[in-house]
Design a protein around this nucleic acid. Structure first.
Length: 576
DNA sequence: GAACACAGCG
DNA sequence: ACGCTGTGTTCT
């Protein structure tokens, strides 16, 4: 393999000028301790391994080069998180790991993808070797160069495959972006995901500010409270309230409750099952203990990750096959609504909090082209109320709260692949609406009579699934997935298009902020919601920029239905 | 250590 | 009924 180990100023200058001949460079880094030791940069002909221990001044030159070049690498989030603090910011990004996700491969490590696409077997044992030693071994340097070589070959293959993904007439605007032009990409969702890598790196570097004192105070308070409740419960009943098994037996024997069975034949004691018995003292006590326990778990989770007043979660850019992100360590996408006030902007800053309203239903209406639902959205109707009035055949003004809830269950069922049984179950457990099975079926049929395009869509998916055992779902920006069950097949394009839209909105927000010279950073993303932290003086302008970006993104993805974003400015992460 | 149960979110 | 992650118990 041809590569050059660069440790002197003269060869550095030659190397970097050699890299000028292409709009992008292949890049990898090796880190020692907390910083970058090696920069491996390559083009189609050459690979240079630049040692920052010998050449600290290379940072300036690399910064200048990279600010004008796209970079191609595997899992670039990792490298970018070291590069951003050095103010090395690429002009565009292409990540072969993200490519692997988009092409639906089952694993995404460089070695797996190289094996799968190139037939190579990689030895990664040197990855964890000592990169801080003064003199690196020849093997280490060669190993460092190899990754870039592999990525270079992967890029060509992957780009071709990604560009051959067809099947969308949306997002033509995206062909004019840096990412599309630099790398020659044509599939809109590929363009979005490749550009989005930088957003995820920034998001992780930003972290989220928390009210540390309040979290610690509540932790202590809840800890004490829980200890007491558990102790009292045990003394009274000689039962461990943390054990579902013991609770199941206890409630059956002592209170004579007949509980349904779980998957493994135990007695179910979950919240939904116990809800109807909550008036009984023992059940009430269990539910109270569970409530406190859950809150304490979340407090502990958060407090274990606080560093200088912020938590720094890991975000997976593609955490679900649908393209949604996920968050962990800590998970900041499942914070209980009544605990969100524990997130507090830094002194002098405020949060701007915005979400898309009823976005999945709007997407569904457009996706299947259901004229009656599209019309309802265009007329600004409350869709749940509207559905209730159609199905129950009475004016919208006369729809009760409970009836609206029922219709809401039906509308959601539509997105998840409705069944009469599912509807009946869901209506009861989530909304406390009692609905017999045959009544549910009548409603379901009526529902499909009014939203006829949904009926046709469901039938088409069922038929195709029967014939081919699988159906390829495609989002409005061209993300695709092979579904093997009906519910997956109908849910994927809807949830997936929602993911497309959120990511595009964040990218457009970034552009908007730059254009207006505003300061502010995205600190959390929760599927249809964007949380930004910015200086308090500019919060109103940032709010406008965010709303604008979200609606503009909406116009790119959805052509036949209005998209609405609701936003507030607040010191804490609450909308009220 | 894996599988399950439970609970939080969209 | 769709998509996630964290914690604790229970089973192997």
């Amino acid at each position: 393999m041809k590569y050059e180990y660069v440790t002197e100023r003269g060869s550095l200058v030659r190397a970097l000028s050699n890299l000028e001949n292409s709009p992008y460079v292949f890049l990898d880094t090796e880190t020692a301790g907390n910083r970058i030791r090696l920069f491996q940069l390559g083009n189609e002909e050459s690979i240079f391994v630049i040692d920052l221990f010998d050449l600290p001044e290379a940072v300036e030159l690399i910064r200048e080069l990279i600010s004008r070049k796209g970079i191609v690498g595997h899992n670039l989030k990792f490298d970018l998180k070291f590069m951003y603090p050095l103010e090395i910011i690429p002009y565009a990004t292409f990540d072969t790991m993200i490519g692997s996700f988009l092409l639906g491969y089952e694993r995404h490590s460089l070695s797996y993808v190289a094996e799968r696409l190139l037939g190579y077997t990689l030895d990664k044992s040197l990855q964890l070797s000592d990169w801080s030693r003064t003199n690196l071994t020849k093997q280490q340097i060669e190993y460092a160069a190899t990754d870039v070589l592999i990525v270079r070959e992967l890029f060509a293959k992957m780009k071709e495959r990604l560009n051959s993904i067809g099947g969308t007439d949306r997002g033509e605007e995206l062909l004019n972006t840096r990412t599309a032009r630099v790398f020659g990409l044509t599939n809109p969702v590929t363009i979005v995901e490749m550009a989005f890598v930088q957003e995820v790196a920034k998001l992780e570097l930003s972290g989220i500010p928390v009210d540390e004192e309040e979290i610690e105070r509540l932790s202590r308070e809840f800890e004490k409270k829980l200890q007491r409740l558990i102790m009292d419960f045990y003394i009274k009943y000689r039962i461990d309230p943390m054990s579902p098994k013991q609770i199941g037996n206890f409630l059956t024997r002592r209170l004579g409750l007949s509980l349904p069975e779980t998957q493994k034949g135990n007695l179910s004691t979950d919240d939904k099952t116990l809800a109807e018995f909550s008036h009984k003292r023992e059940v009430g006590e269990i539910l109270e203990i569970r409530r406190i326990k859950k809150a304490l778990d979340k407090l502990k989770e958060l407090s274990g990750y606080i560093s200088k007043g912020r938590v720094y979660p890991d975000f997976k850019q593609i955490g679900a096959v649908t393209g949604r992100m996920s968050s962990s360590n800590p998970n900041v996408q499942n914070i209980p609504r009544d605990m969100r006030s524990l997130f507090k902007a830094e002194e002098g800053n405020l949060f701007v909090i915005a979400d898309f309203s009823q976005i999945e239903l709007r997407i569904a209406a457009e996706y299947v082209g259901d004229e009656s639902m599209l019309r309802a959205f265009r007329e600004g109707k409350d869709l749940h109320r509207y559905t209730a009035s159609l199905v129950l055949e009475k004016p919208e003004e006369e729809i009760s709260k409970e009836e609206r809830q029922l219709a809401k269950a039906m509308n959601f069922g539509l997105i998840y692949g409705i069944s009469a049984r599912g509807l009946s179950e869901y209506a009861r457990s989530s909304y406390g609406v009692n609905l017999e099975l045959d009544a549910a079926d009548v409603f379901r049929q009526k529902f499909f009579k009014f939203f006829h395009a949904f009926k046709e869509w469901h039938d088409r998916v069922k038929r195709e699934l029967k014939e081919n055992k699988e159906v390829t779902g495609t989002t409005l920006l061209g993300r695709s997935y092979r579904a093997t069950t009906f519910t997956d097949a109908v849910n994927y394009p809807i949830q997936g298009t929602g993911a497309d839209l959120l990511k595009l909105a964040v990218l457009m927000f970034d552009v908007e902020m730059r254009k207006k010279g505003l300061e502010g950073r995205v600190v959390n993303l929760v599927h249809d919601e964007i949380v930004v932290e910015c200086p308090e003086d500019s919060a109103q302008e940032v709010k406008k920029a965010l709303e604008h970006a979200m609606v503009q993104a909406g116009h790119i993805v959805l052509k036949n239905v209005p998209v609405e974003a609701e936003s507030v400015v607040n010191e804490r992460w609450v909308k009220g």
